[in-house]
Amino acid sequence: MKGTNLGEFEELVLLTIAALMDKAYSVAICDELSTHNGRTVKLGVVHSVLHRLEEKGFVKSELGEATKSRGGKRKRFYQLTVTGKEALVRTKAMRDQLWDRIPSLAWK
C-alpha cells in the first residue's frame, strides 16, 4: 500500500479535494463523492483514506476557523501537495496511454 501508487478510491478522493479547492474538508468530500459517485460513502471510510493520503504525502491539512455549528469544533481542510498533483497527473497519463493503445475497432 505504501508507496506512490493510487488506489481507485484514493484517486477519487484526491480528485474531489482538488475539485473542492479550499472548501475540502471531510464532510464536504463525503457529500461530493456521494452525489457524483452515485453510491453512499461512509464518513469513516473517507476519514481513513484522508489519513492514509496524508501519510503518503499526497495531501496536507490544517484546521480552519472555529464556527458555531459542529458544536464549536473546527474543520480540518485538506489541500493537494505537489506530490499529490504529480500522482494524479501520472495516473491520468498512464490511463490515457492505455486508452490510446486500444484500437477503435475493439469497441464495436
Binding site: S26, V27, S69, G71, K73, R74
Partner: peptide
C-alpha cells in the same frame, strides 16, 4: 490531534 475534527464531523452529521 484527530479528535477535534472527528467530533466536529460527527456533530455536523448529527445535526
Amino acid at each position: 490531534e484527530l479528535a477535534e475534527d472527528l467530533i466536529g464531523d460527527l456533530n455536523e452529521y448529527f445535526e
